[in-house]
Design a protein around this nucleic acid. Structure first.
Length: 658
RNA sequence: GGCGGCGUAGCUCAGUUGGUGAGAGCGACCGGCUCAUACCCGGUAGGUCGGCGGUUCGAAUCCGCCCGCCGCUACCA
């Protein structure tokens, strides 16, 4: 039993919010790839699904006053329904709450623990519930907020299992270096190698404090399996690795795993392959991390508030244009693929969608189909009159070349380029019509010439019908119907010309994409936000700005937890190989401490010695550049520069500030 | 700070290994056509190919420096 299916995956999506442009992008790209390979005759297995074992999910459910299971059932249905509405033809929709998945996670955990790749230790650190991530002390600011989402972190101190990720660092690096196509595009590969160069730490793979998730096997106090470890294994579960004996190898390994760039270097290109190495399983053929869509130059993600809901965008397009919903949905798919961010990020806008809709779809594709069929009906009663008609040169050469180029681009998941190549056919035929002017040939009585020209155009329409199917399946079917073909032609027939036989009767032409009328001002309107997402600026912006919102209050008790004192700098020296850091020795009452402060851009060591300063004395010690810092110097921040706070007059060191 | 990348017509961007007069789409203007969804075709827009040097017979394309962006990462206890 060997490999049989072309196995494509998307990440499984968190169910704590509804689908948006970002998750839709990954899923649409995956669907287009899946369809592309199907059209070429491959057996394809396309997996997507939902990640439901996160504690955050549990918490969101509680906030909504729902049993967690009910909540995840509902949300999984929202995702599945959205994907179906977007013409996503997945083969399996996996949910991590399924028993078979839990069995996979349990089994993998056991095996790796027996092997020694998972071991028990303990974890102390700051944890972001929202991002499901522990943060090293060196990563977080004094305000103890999450570097990613800006939300407050929680302190955790718990026994915990670790995965021996560090043991796979060099193997991983060697694999990536000797398999240049493993990680795509190139930028992502470089990023991953850069990430590896920093060195890999063992990662926590269990957590206590919640019972929502897969329990650590054979250890009643072991907590649940870390959600990332759990989630990644869905790709394995779906193959039937546990139940199908050797037969799961008809699927394994994945041929193409798609995802956003944010989860590639850290998870899919490191932890994931390392887990597979530990399991002694073959690695995926190809990991592809696309860029993000920005809205008004700003990042868009579930944690932020500036998110479009895909179905609402499609609905708005239908309303504004009069285009039927399935075709408006395909127009949305087309826009996503045509503008898909590859290396860097790209801008998503309704204006852009309108331009693509009117220009590429209504004026180019739709109009070409319509004018071609209209002329056939007008001049030839909708019938391929002669079996002698052939696709003419130089058009035949153009068709051949463009199909090849588009195919190559689609293989590289480069839909922006692939679709451009497809559209070259459209403009070539438009130019050809203009030169040949079959309407003039008819007037001149040269019916044979006109038929020859139109047949060439007709074949172009047939080829286009096949080429666009991965991007716009419903439109492809509509065109096939107008051509009166039983099915959308498979890829192999796109470079075989003259397939429409003499005597073939064409269907009726109907415009598929009615133009958006500018003068009617039927614009698509304002951003459509997700239900439950607050409007306004992304939360991250305020969290990241130095000037925090002043209206958040804390209690006096919270303030009292801070031990702020006056100290005197007795010694100061720069920290080697740094620009901002000074190592200070300070006198704090009876004791002497060492702290590290990032103020070298504003003060020289000489300026500091002897000065009295304000320090936070009961801050968790942290090691910075190998120096243990036992406290934090307080300073005003002006344009990123630190300005010291100095007592109005000399005070005893160790004095309390309150 | 380190690593990676980018900076080409008003806008969005193509431009493999250096060489015919630097391109496409959108927008604007002019013209043509009339089969078609006021569509399509052609032309014009005269962009120092971020700046300065260098290599070369010749560079947007190679090298160095600088400026400005972006991504990842790192030192802002």
């Amino acid at each position: 039993m060997g490999k049989r299916y072309y196995y494509i995956t998307t990440p499984i999506y968190y169910v704590n919010s509804t689908p948006h442009i970002g998750t839709a992008l990954t899923t649409i790209v995956a669907d287009a790839c899946a369809r592309f390979y199907k059209r070429r005759g491959r057996a394809v297995y396309f997996l997507t699904g939902t990640d439901e074992n996160a504690p955050k999910v549990h918490r969101v459910a509680q906030e909504q006053g729902k049993p967690t299971q009910q909540f995840v059932d509902e949300m999984a249905e929202v995702f599945a329904r959205t994907w179906r509405m977007l013409h996503i033809e997945y083969d399996v929709f996996i949910r991590t709450t399924e028993e078979r998945h839990k069995r996979t996670v349990t089994e993998v955990f056991r095996r790796l623990r027996e092997k020694g790749d998972i071991y028990k230790g303990s974890y102390q650190g700051w944890y972001c519930l929202s991002c499901e991530t522990f943060w090293a002390t060196s990563k977080i600011g004094a305000e103890r907020s999450c570097p990613d989402c800006g939300k407050p972190l929680e302190w955790r101190d718990e026994p915990c299992y670790y995965f021996r990720l560090s043991a796979y660092e060099s193997r991983l690096r060697e694999y990536i270096q000797s398999n240049p196509h493993f990680i795509q595009p190139e930028v992502r590969r470089n990023e991953t190698l850069g990430f590896l160069a920093e060195g890999l730490q063992d990662v926590a793979v269990s957590r206590s404090g919640t019972d929502w998730g897969v329990p650590v096997p054979d250890d009643p106090d072991g907590g649940v399996v870390y959600v990332w470890f759990d989630a990644l294994l869905n790709y394995l579960t779906a193959t039937g690795w546990l139940e199908r004996g050797e037969e799961y190898l008809d699927l394994w390994p994945p041929d193409l795993q798609l995802m956003g760039k944010d989860i590639l270097p850290r998870f899919h290109a490191t932890i994931w392959p390392a887990m597979l190495m530990a399991l002694e399983l073959p690695l995926p053929e190809r990991l592809y991390g696309h860029g993000w869509f920005l809205v008004n130059q700003k990042k868009m993600s579930k944690s932020l508030g500036n998110v479009y809901a895909p179905l609402e965008v499609a609905q708005a397009l239908t309303t504004a244009s009069g285009c039927e919903l399935p075709y408006a949905t395909d127009a949305f798919r087309y826009y996503m693929l045509r503008e898909m961010p590859t290396d860097s990020d790209a801008e998503f806008s309704l204006e852009g969608l309108e331009t693509r809709y009117n220009g590429d779809l209504a004026n180019d594709l739709g109009n070409l189909v319509h004018r071609t069929l209209s002329m056939m009906h007008r001049y030839f009663e909708g019938r391929v009159a002669s079996g002698e008609w052939r696709v003419e040169e130089p058009l035949a050469t153009v068709f051949q070349r463009q199909v090849e180029r588009a195919t190559e681009a689609f293989e590289q998941v480069d839909f922006p380029r692939g679709l451009r190549e497809v559209w070259e056919i459209i403009s070539a035929v438009n130019r050809y019509y203009d030169e040949q002017a079959p309407w003039a040939q008819m007037k001149a009585g040269d019916t044979q010439r006109a038929g020859q020209v139109l047949y060439t155009g007709l074949e172009a329409v047939r080829i286009l019908c096949g080429l666009i199917e991965p991007a716009m399946p419903a439109v492809a079917h509509a065109i096939a119907t107008q051509l009166n073909l039983p099915t959308v032609p498979p890829w192999s027939e796109l470079t075989e010309f003259n397939r429409l036989p003499g005597g073939h009767i064409l269907g009726q032409p109907t415009p598929i994409f009615p133009r958006l009328q500018a003068e009617k001002a039927t614009k698509l309107g304002q951003p459509h936000r997700l239900e439950g997402e607050p409007p306004g600026e992304p939360k991250k912006e305020t969290a990241r700005q130095g000037d925090k919102a002043m209206n958040e209050t804390i209690t006096i008790d919270e303030f009292k937890r801070l031990d702020i004192r006056i100290a005197r700098v007795v010694q100061a020296e720069p920290v080697p190989k740094t620009d901002k850091l000074l190592k200070l020795t300070i006198e704090l009452g009876d004791e002497t401490r060492t702290i590290v402060a990032g103020i070298a851009e504003t003060y020289t060591p000489e300026q500091l010695v002897g000065k009295q300063i304000v320090v936070l004395a009961n801050l968790q010690p942290a090691t910075i550049r190998g120096i243990v810092s036992e406290g934090m110097l307080l300073a005003a921040e002006v344009d990123g520069k630190a300005i010291l706070l100095i007592p109005d007059r000399e005070v005893p060191t160790g004095s309390i500030v309150r």
